[in-house]
Computed example of a mutant assay.
Amino acid sequence: MAAISGIELKRPAWQNTVMLALGFWLSGSLVLDLVIMPTLYATGMMSGAGFATAAYAIFWIFNRIELLCAALVLTGLLVLKHNQNTSSQEGRRSVLLSLLLLAIAIIYTYFLTPQMSAMGMQLNLFEPTATPAAMTTMHGSYWILEALKLIGCGTLLGWCYRKFNFN
C-alpha cells in the first residue's frame, strides 16, 4: 500500500507503546467508573456487609495495573523526549502531565483505596452497616482525582496522536 501511495506511516515504537498504554488505561478507567461501580450501586451491593472487601479486591488489581500503565507512559514519553534531542514546551508538559498521572496512581494505590476499604470494613457482624462521614469526603477526593486522571490521559493521548513533534 505504501508503494502505491508513496505515503508511509511511521511512528516510533515508543509512541505506539505510549498510545496503547494510555488507551488501555483510559478505557479501563471508564469501564470501572461508568459500568462496574454504577452496576454495584444499582444492585444494592454497596450497602452489603462484604462490599468493602470485594471493592478492595477489585481496586487492588486495577490500581496495580494503573501503576504499570503510568510507569510505561512516563518511560515512553521520556524516551521520546530524549530521542528528539530538544527541550520544547510540549515535551516538558507531557512529561509533567505523565508525572501527575503517576502521582494520582500512587495516591490511589497506597493511600486512598486502603483508607476507604478500612473505613468501610465491617468488623462487628452484630452492628448495622453505616457509612462514616469521612467516606463522603474520600469519595469526593476520588472523583476529583479521577476527573484529573481522565483529562490528563485524554490530553496525552491527543498529543501522542498528533505525532509528538517536540520542535
Rank of each mutant, 00 (worst) to 15 (best):
G50N: 12
F164K: 04
L148W: 05
Y110G: 11
P132M: 04
I65P: 04
L22G: 02
T129H: 14
M116Q: 06
V95R: 02
K163S: 11
S117Q: 03
M37V: 12
L96Y: 11
M138T: 06
M46G: 04
S88E: 09
W143S: 10
W143L: 09
S47G: 14
M1G: 12
Q89V: 15
P12A: 15
A130K: 13
L80H: 01
T75Y: 14
Q115E: 12
L26C: 12
G50T: 07
A71Q: 06
M37R: 12
R11G: 03
Y56M: 09
A21I: 05
A13E: 08
A2D: 08
A70P: 02
R92M: 10
P128R: 13
S27C: 09
F111W: 15
I106W: 05
F51A: 00
R64L: 13
T155V: 08
F164L: 13
N63E: 02
E66D: 07
T136Y: 10
A57D: 11
R93Y: 13
L125P: 06
F62W: 08
T137G: 14
L96M: 12
S87F: 11
Y41G: 08
L112Y: 02
F126A: 14
G158M: 11
L20R: 02
S87N: 13
G154Q: 05
A49I: 14
A105I: 02
S47C: 05
A21H: 02
L102G: 08
F62Q: 08
